[in-house]
């Protein structure tokens, strides 16, 4: 257990090192003077500002030294500041992350909660009508891009029924949970569609395997009811795999909300990243990228640990 933990931590550090280096080199790879990359075009004739920034950032130092400085600052929570908006990158992230986090979490929960019964029941009656209908549904969900689903949801729930708003965001802290969910549910559902389909398929496949196990037959031979066997004996082993997948999906969604946030005009990290890209706001792009990558690998690590914690076969070793 301790050994596994150490190995996972080493891998985490190595991954973060690689990611941060690549992110940092983004700037280095841009043609010309780094200062020109950092500043908006209209500031480029202002030689005084350029000189000030050059000394402020000590841009004459070698790239590796500057990388070291950037990482050291980042470790202390300082990701620099935008030379376009003058905002500190860490502040921007702190401001935007709740929206993205909530979307990702909500989407993961929707995908998980629906996938478990769908997958379990499809497996239980493999080849039955429910299984075939769901197989059609998952195929469709996987072949439709999230933004198409989003547009469909907007058409259905906003334009046709007028149940939910199509844009904007109510913060829980301002308007309460219900108003918040009203703005979150459509984008989260659009995000959840693909992971839901993947989860349902994985759980189905896993359960079909589990249901063939001897211990399922012995559970039947004890006279236990089908539903009980399904929930207690079949889903349990599968849920270990499932939890891992849910965690990975959550991590991936943190960086995967860009398109949906844009369609629904949500004040999340994704839209901030996009505006950063349009404005060539390099520090912002670097900061957000590093942040998202870090969240992703940390979530991965936590998922690994959770798996170790949940599987009694590993836990006791």
């Amino acid at each position: 257990m301790g050994k596994i933990l150490a190995a996972r931590l080493a891998r985490l550090v190595a991954t973060l090192f690689a990611v941060s280096l690549l992110t940092f080199l983004l700037v280095e790879q841009l043609p010309g003077d780094p200062v020109t990359a950092l500043l908006p075009p209209e500031a480029l004739h202002d030689l005084e500002t350029m000189e000030r920034i050059r000394t402020e950032l000590r841009l004459d130092d070698p790239a590796l030294v500057r990388y070291g400085r950037w990482v050291t600052d980042a470790l202390q929570g300082d990701l620099g500041k935008s030379y376009i908006t003058d905002q500190r990158v860490a502040d921007a992230i702190r401001d935007r992350i709740p929206v993205t986090m909530e979307l990702a979490l909500l989407a993961t929960v929707i995908a998980a909660v629906l996938a478990i019964p769908i997958g379990a029941f499809s497996a239980y009656r493999e080849g039955g009508r429910f299984d075939r209908v769901m197989s059609g549904f998952t195929t469709a969900s996987l072949s439709i891009p999230a933004f198409v689903a989003a547009i469909f949801f907007i058409w259905l729930f906003t334009l046709k029924f007028n149940w939910l708003p199509s844009t904007g965001w109510n913060r829980i802290t301002d308007k309460g949970l219900l108003a918040n969910l009203k703005t979150a549910i459509l984008p989260a559902s659009a995000l959840a569609l693909a992971p839901l389909a993947i989860n349902a398929r994985l759980i189905r496949a896993d359960m079909i395997g589990t249901l063939k196990e001897d211990y399922i037959l012995s559970a039947r031979a004890k006279g236990l009811r089908s539903r009980y066997i399904l929930m207690r004996h079949a889903l349990r082993p599968s849920s270990l795999t499932a939890i891992t997948i849910f965690g990975l999906q959550f991590g991936a969604l943190i960086g995967g909300t860009v398109v949906i946030e844009t369609i629904f005009a949500l004040p999340g990290l994704g839209t901030r990243l996009i505006s950063g890209i349009y404005q060539r706001d390099v520090t912002m792009i670097q900061g957000i990228t590093l942040f998202v990558a870090t969240v992703y690998v940390v979530v991965n690590l936590l998922v690994d640990l959770l798996y170790l914690l949940l599987d009694p076969r590993i836990r006791r070793q």
Partner: peptide
């Protein structure tokens, strides 16, 4: 086979 007829996670 008692290795497979008991549920490993129960």
């Amino acid at each position: 086979d008692p290795m497979t007829s008991l549920n490993p996670v129960v």
